[in-house]
Nucleic acid binder design. Structure first.
Length: 498
RNA sequence: GCGCCCGUGGCGCAAUUGGAUAGCGCAUCGGUCUUCGGAACCGAGGGUUGCAGGUUCGAAUCCUGCCGGGCGUACCA
């Protein structure tokens, strides 16, 4: 958990220069959020200002080489050389265009900042915020009294704010140790690496050079600060000492695969050869523009808003459906609210988990909040239907479960459903073998579809014989329990009425 | 430049890791329908799996080369 990184340097810098004491007094997290965004904005503009001339020069250079490539193509002899030259020219033109686009976007940001008087004044008063922020971060890490004190007062409210989201998502931890916990363990790790001859000085930084990698894994910056890799090494050592794990899974965006490849290589060389270390990488969430999705303006705001939207939309559908009941509405306002919570969260989680873990996907609220087709709602609906039958028939499933011999599969729909039920264990194995939750979602959707067919074709309470009725009730119960168990493994709840 | 990943009906995705006629959802079209809960069911159309070779009894999957896209690449995480 990132309780120690640059984001705290940003907040500390913001607090020292821009805090609104009264606002902080009233709502600390809101004010700290504002400060974070403010500092972020200053850093972004200054990045744009420093990148602009670089981009301009790059456009100039690429324009030259593009011209040269076109001239070369004009005089190239026909055949293979011409094709090659044309391709080079095309590539050069593409590069020039994308450089121009980049230049324009830096320029637009600079101009927007220039039009904002207050922002311009701040930029003038605070040149190079990024360096200042890094300095605050370094001071925090070095034990500076002021920064430590600020960090200690900020941390609880920041942590509590994040907890709100975890609570909404029902995410809990068995152990929780932040980056800060490992800080004091970093120096001994580096000493060990140095005495093992693995870590050496290079250009002022402490580096581990590894076979098969062009660049080293840097474990201590020139300015003395530790990095991501340092904490990862200390964390691994601590975990081995404390829990003797057989395997450690790192569930992290695939863009960090090189980092983990280096980390694992270093760790094995260090002597930890018995642990199964795995980077469970996943694809990037993309915005509408196909670029990685970011909430530059804040941190958890985007997610919070999405959760609200999911619940709100589910509430609309629940209400609409309940109002349309033949005998009038059945649900209280509280029930509707609870159902909307469960269904909305489920839709979001399912949208994420039903995707192939390794592929990118586009952040699209419309799709993520859909309640039709291959969605959690479909499974939850099956579960609720079973409870509808049990309620209407006054059935106690516990009684059924005493006599499993009552199960008889005669019609094709019953047989198809029964076969799917038997495959549950197999689906779990599939999901587990390569850490792919979508194997499980796919199974559950298949099961629920078969149940729908069964439900349509096979009357349960009005079955022809008591034996058939009992058998079908049993199938219903098994289906409901399988769906409930499967969804629970995905962190998704069910409701008896919806 | 080097490295990693991706390309599957209009759109979004699967494919038991090399097996049988490539599946599903949305969308489209057509049916069911005074329901054990229609947030449903049944059916139809739509594919040369980016292109070209190769390996194999068998390729969406493995190899090679193109085309197109994404990401990473020395002190961010």
């Amino acid at each position: 958990m990132g309780d120690w990184g640059t984001q705290f340097g940003m907040i500390i810098y913001g607090y020292k220069h821009f805090v609104d004491a009264a606002a902080y007094e009233r709502q600390p997290v809101v004010e700290l959020g504002r400060l974070y965004r403010l500092v972020r904005q200053l850093m972004d503009v200054q990045e744009a200002q420093s990148q602009l001339p670089v981009a301009v020069a790059k456009v100039e250079q690429l324009t030259q080489s593009s011209l040269a490539a076109r001239e070369a193509a004009a005089v190239a002899p026909a055949g293979e050389p011409l094709k090659r030259a044309e391709k080079t020219a095309r590539l050069a033109a593409d590069q020039r265009r994308s450089a121009e686009a980049e230049r324009d976007s830096w320029q637009a940001r600079c101009e927007a900042a220039a039009r904002d008087g207050e922002l311009s004044a701040r930029l003038a008063a605070h040149p190079d915020v990024e360096t200042s922020v890094l300095r605050e971060t370094a001071k925090l890490h070095a034990g500076d009294a002021d920064n430590r004190r600020l960090w200690q007062t900020f941390l609880p409210s920041c942590r509590a704010d994040i907890q709100r989201i975890y609570d909404r998502l029902h995410v809990t931890f068995d152990h929780e140790l932040g980056e800060s916990f490992y800080h004091e363990r970093c120096a001994p790790v580096l000493e060990a690496l140095q005495s093992a001859g693995m870590a050496v000085d290079s250009q002022g930084a402490l580096c581990v050079f590894l076979d098969g990698f062009e660049t080293p894994m840097i474990v201590r910056k020139r300015d003395g600060a530790y990095l991501y890799a340092t904490t990862d090494l200390a964390t691994l050592q601590y975990r081995v000492e404390t829990w003797q794990p057989a395997a450690i899974l790192y569930v992290v965006d695939f863009r960090q695969s090189e980092h983990f490849a280096k980390l694992f290589a270093a760790v094995r060389q260090w002597g930890y050869t018995q642990i199964d270390l795995r980077h469970i990488s996943f694809g990037t969430v993309l915005g509408k523009d196909g670029r990685p999705y970011k909430t530059r303006s804040g941190d958890t705001v985007g997610l919070d808003g999405l959760l609200d939207e999911a619940v709100h939309k589910a509430h609309e559908v629940v209400s609409q459906n309940d109002d349309g009941k033949p005998d009038g509405p059945e649900l209280s306002a509280e029930q509707r609210q609870h159902i909307a919570q469960v269904i909305g969260m489920a839709a979001l989680k399912y949208a994420d988990l039903s995707q192939n873990r390794t592929s990118d996907y586009e952040y699209s609220p419309e799709k993520m909040l859909s309640l039709q087709g291959n969605t959690a709602t479909y499974m939850q609906y099956s579960f609720a239907r079973v409870h509808g039958i049990f309620a209407k028939g006054n059935i106690d499933p516990q009684v059924l479960r005493q006599r499993p011999e009552c199960l008889h599969l005669t019609s094709p729909a019953e047989r198809s459903l029964g076969l799917a039920l038997l495959r549950f264990a197999e689906a779990l194995d599939d999901a587990l073998s390569d850490y792919r939750p979508n194997q499980l979602t796919q199974y559950l959707f298949d099961l629920a579809k078969r149940f729908s067919t069964f439900f349509e074709e096979c009357p349960v309470l009005r079955a022809d014989t008591p034996a058939e009725r009992d058998s079908r009730l049993m199938l219903c119960d098994l289906t409901a329990r399988t769906i409930q168990q499967g969804l629970e493994l995905l962190g998704i709840q069910v409701v008896q009425k919806m």
